[in-house]
Amino acid sequence: MSFKLIEPGKVRVRIAPAPTGFLHIGLARTALFNYLFAKKYEGVFILRIEDTDIERSDPEFEKNILENLKWLGIEWSEGPDIGGEYGPYRQSQRLETYAKYLEKLLTENKAYHCFCPEEELEAQKQYQMSIGQPPIYSGKCRDLPLETVQKYLAEGRPSIIRFKTPAKKIEFDDVIRGKIEFDTSLIGDIAIAKNLATPLYNFAVVIDDFEMKISHVIRGEDHISNTPKQILIQEALGFPRPIYAHLPLILGPDRTKLSKRHEAIAVSEYKKQGYLPETIINFIAFLGWNPGTEREIYSMPSLIKEFSLEKVQKGGAIFNIKRLDFLNGFYIRQRSVEKLTELCLPYLIEAGFLKSHEEVEEFHLGAPHYEISQTKELIDLVKLEKIV
């Protein structure tokens, strides 16, 4: 598929984090690739918050995600903080919309209430796995008579809503990976909601992408198995299919899943450690994407100009902390002494080497001297410039 044929202004992409943790490198990389793609084709980049998991969602995590995306220079055109034509942009504020489509599927006999106890479902799952079969639902409640369903609901029996998965093969063209095929017999009747007021991920994301007119879904390869489920729901509701592109996983140098032991931490922690935003952007841009040249340093405008999903690799991207340090050293050396001083002051004050801004007499950026609180020595910026 060639993106040269994409009409400028027609692209609408999104990043849809769940506020259950801080902004991490993987999510930042996905956000960047969506942002670059949207900017390249004069499209729209949307931020959507998937907060239907009430127990795990936390406003502090959402705040961290938004603040650090902005710090990186990744700005959105529509989102929970600025609104937009297709809002609201928090799933918790879209429950009535989900209920409408759930009722539609139930009315059209494309979904049904499942009353099987959790213990029974878990036992079935464990048995299937023990004999080497995929853990799929047996379909026990699939064809319950309407009178029985109404009776159980009236009695208040606990239930979930399942999608009636048709027996067929699902194929889709992935921009990065080519044609991918799934047999729905290995999927079974998937759960799409706990009840009319509590949709589950694979259902809610389909509704949101349709309602927000998403043209391309660019996300991690860990979502590949979700794609056929979402396509089935799209087809049942008569929705158009977006174009999919699944990015490679980010791996540690030992080619295992990236974790803290590989020095991969939250973006906010890198910020505290003194890494610059342009460093992070340049670094994560190369986690799976390669322009095909020897060039290593890219500004955001350069990335927008050069970025292409066709140059994203299939294999895992290797996280190399030494490269991150190299890039940070480069960008630090590009800063003026005044700017470096401005960047260093918060760290010096926190460590107790400098007094607070208010206590430093006649403090202002560009002043010739700064007083070190512990020794009362003065930092001479002229000498500092020669050292730097």
Rank of each mutant, 00 (worst) to 15 (best):
S2W: 00
K4S: 15
I6P: 04
P8V: 11
V11Q: 08
V11K: 08
R12V: 11
L23V: 03
A28S: 11
L32M: 00
L32Q: 00
Y35K: 13
A38L: 12
K40L: 06
D51P: 08
I54D: 08
E55A: 15
E62N: 09
K70D: 01
K70L: 02
L72E: 11
L72Y: 02
G73I: 05
I74N: 01
E75Y: 15
E75P: 02
S92I: 11
R94E: 12
K100L: 15
Y101G: 06
C116Y: 04
E120C: 02
E122T: 05
K125M: 10
Q128A: 11
I131L: 12
I131N: 09
G132L: 10
Q133C: 00
S138V: 10
T148L: 14
K151E: 14
A154W: 05
P158D: 03
F163E: 04
T165I: 13
P166Q: 03
P166G: 03
E171C: 02
E171F: 07
E171V: 00
F172A: 06
V175T: 13
K179R: 15
D183S: 14
I190W: 01
A193V: 10
N195V: 01
T198Y: 03
T198Q: 13
A204L: 11
I207Y: 03
D209S: 11
M212F: 06
K213T: 09
G220D: 14
E221N: 12
P228A: 13
Q234D: 08
E235I: 03
E235P: 01
E235A: 06
G238N: 08
R241W: 04
Y244C: 06
L249K: 07
G252D: 03
P253Y: 00
R255M: 11
L258Q: 06
K260D: 05
R261I: 09
A264C: 10
A264D: 07
V267L: 13
E269W: 05
Y270R: 02
I281P: 03
I281H: 05
N282P: 12
N282A: 12
G288E: 14
W289M: 06
T293P: 03
Y298N: 04
S299E: 03
S302Q: 15
I304Q: 07
E306Q: 05
E310Y: 02
V312I: 13
K314G: 00
A317M: 05
N320D: 15
F326Q: 14
N328M: 02
G329R: 14
Q334Y: 00
K339A: 10
K339F: 14
L340W: 10
P346D: 09
E350R: 13
K355D: 14
K355W: 08
E359Q: 12
E359C: 00
F363S: 01
F363R: 04
H364Y: 15
L365S: 09
P368G: 11
I372D: 13
Q374T: 11
Q374W: 07
T375N: 01
E377Q: 15
I379Q: 10
L384D: 08
E385L: 09
K386P: 00
I387S: 14
